[in-house]
């Protein structure tokens, strides 16, 4: 008794497989190949071995600076987004008035595009700083915290929705049983709620980590790396390497490959770590 869907699996998967090949696998392999070449457009590449990779770390200090800035940004924003989003989710799953309205309001920033958000926040932050005789480009710290505020404002709503779904999925009998057994709020939170929403935590951490690392449009619109490329994140650095210097296309490509490897490793480690804590429900 074989499942017919299983039998026709190749036919069903073919269209999407082709799409996946064209839109992802082929560009990815091409990009990998181009990182070992010198080229202006993809059709006139010349093989140069690993010299592009060497140049990233020897000739060009911007990559390491950008990487360090990105890591600092990612750590702080991942923590703050998840903590705030989880707290809001806890609040908005209680029987408080207007919870539906608040959920909608918090979610809305996520619907606005990154470039628009970047410019809006640039105006807001400059509006405040002007009063003190500064602008967002006056110091890299303004740009750094500006990016963190912006990212929090945008991502919290989305993560909150995922956490809310997770919290609502906790069977009420467990919570009631805990209450009957005399568990206080703290114990309920750490022994029941958090372990039960581990799948949500996995997905939220994954989304925030990868998004923080790959952040591009918000960075471009808010500071564009100013002052002095000191608020430039890796994605923007790759873009600038690729486009603003003659003969650096291959190096930009090599940076992209290195960046991919770093993000992939971090994301896989995180998935493994949090998956192992998930309960088999």
């Amino acid at each position: 008794m074989k499942n017919p869907i299983k039998r026709y699996f190749p036919i069903f998967v073919l269209p999407t497989l082709i799409a996946f090949l064209i839109a992802f696998v082929i560009p990815f392999l091409l990009g990998f190949f181009l990182s070992f070449t010198e080229f202006t457009t993809v059709s006139n590449a010349q093989f140069v071995g690993i010299s592009n990779y060497i140049k990233i770390f020897t000739e060009d200090a911007t990559f390491l600076n950008a990487l360090w800035f990105t890591i600092k940004f990612a750590v702080v924003s991942v923590l703050s987004i998840n903590l705030i989003a989880f707290t809001l989710a806890l609040l908005l799953t209680r029987s408080l008035p207007l919870t539906k309205l608040f959920r909608t309001v918090f979610f809305m920033p996520n619907l606005i595009g990154g470039i628009v958000l970047g410019y809006i926040w640039q105006v807001i932050i400059n509006g405040v700083l002007y009063n003190f005789g500064y602008s967002i480009t006056s110091s890299e710290n303004f740009g750094y915290w500006g990016l963190i505020i912006l990212m929090n404002w945008q991502m919290i709503g989305y993560m909150m929705i995922i956490y809310i779904a997770g919290i609502q999925n906790i069977p009420t009998d467990i919570l009631e049983a805990a209450k009957v057994d005399g568990a206080n709020g703290r114990t309920t939170l750490f022994r029941i709620i958090i372990p039960s929403v581990m799948p949500s935590i996995t997905i939220c951490l994954f989304l925030t980590i990868t998004n923080s690392f790959k952040l591009f449009d918000q960075n471009l619109a808010l500071t564009a790396g100013a002052p002095g490329e000191r608020t430039q994140m890796v994605a923007l650095d790759i873009y600038n390497t690729f486009y603003s210097r003659v003969g650096y296309e291959g190096i930009g490509q090599a940076k992209a490959v290195v960046f991919f490897i770093i993000v992939a490793i971090i994301a896989l480690l995180q998935l493994r770590l949090t998956r192992s804590k998930e309960e088999e429900a």
């Binding site: 006056s138 100013a226 002052p227 490329e229 603003s244 650096y248």
Partner: peptide, 20 residues
């Protein structure tokens, strides 16, 4: 030499204007 050169000069001029 390149766009990167001009960009670096621009960044330096901004630092100068801000007194850094």
């Amino acid at each position: 030499p390149s766009e990167a050169f001009k960009k670096e000069v621009g960044n330096a001029l901004l630092d100068y204007a801000q007194g850094k």
